[in-house]
Design a protein around this nucleic acid. Sequence first.
DNA 1: GTGTTAGATCGACAGGCATCTATGTAAAAG
DNA 2: CTTTTACATAGATGCCTGTCGATCTAACAC
Lengths: 117, 117
Amino acid sequence: MPVDLTLAPKEKRAAGDVCCEPIALPDVDVAQAEQLSKLAKALGDPIRLQIVDVLRSHAGEVCVCELVPLFDVSQPTLSHHLRKLREAGIVDSVKRGLWSYYFVKPEPLKELNSWLS
Amino acid sequence: MPVDLTLAPKEKRAAGDVCCEPIALPDVDVAQAEQLSKLAKALGDPIRLQIVDVLRSHAGEVCVCELVPLFDVSQPTLSHHLRKLREAGIVDSVKRGLWSYYFVKPEPLKELNSWLS
DNA sequence: GTGTTAGATCGACAGGCATCTATGTAAAAG
DNA sequence: CTTTTACATAGATGCCTGTCGATCTAACAC
């Protein structure tokens, strides 16, 4: 995480030969890399990735009570995954009555998508 | 990881009211979700994401000796990150003489990219 | 041969994470 | 009021991960 991405000046090699050409500078800065890796990390669990997939394929909001039976983990575990996704900014939720409805926020996934392209 | 994504039949609610419409089926199956989340997990560290970024912005292969000074972690730690990326299939390497050259394999990132789109 | 260099691997340690059960909370039902 | 329901939170546990210094290995230089 504590990264300095300025290219260090190439020093002459002792034997005088070069291992490779000077590399290109990275396109992302450290803050961007941290944001993007935070998104990737949130998707780095198969259950969370499937949650996002389900929420995306459903047009609007999905209630937790519909999500839980899709995965064979306990309700608190699913709640934990939803929190991780919420903390990463990938999903958000609203509460109506007893039910919580989750939905995907499109912007963060778009960020990741455009870095990947 | 042990996930059954077939949609459970909706049971009638005790009070007779419905929290939401039946959700759409996920587009990815479990194996796909595991593969995609494996890729995302490998990108879920800022240093690894920057490594990929550097390798991508450089057209060809990049030698480890060029990578190490870009990040303020030790050489073994960088080697560990490169191994993680290699295990995820995101990068590969060739050895020539004393030097190891790493490069991005485009297909896995394309997989992730097309899921995100 | 010896020495050096690039990089991978090993072993240890601290912190993080996925999972569970148990409990808390807030809203609705009776 | 009490009970039930939906979900979140707390606490515990075992595994995984990022980091380091030390060491190993293979290839070159001499």
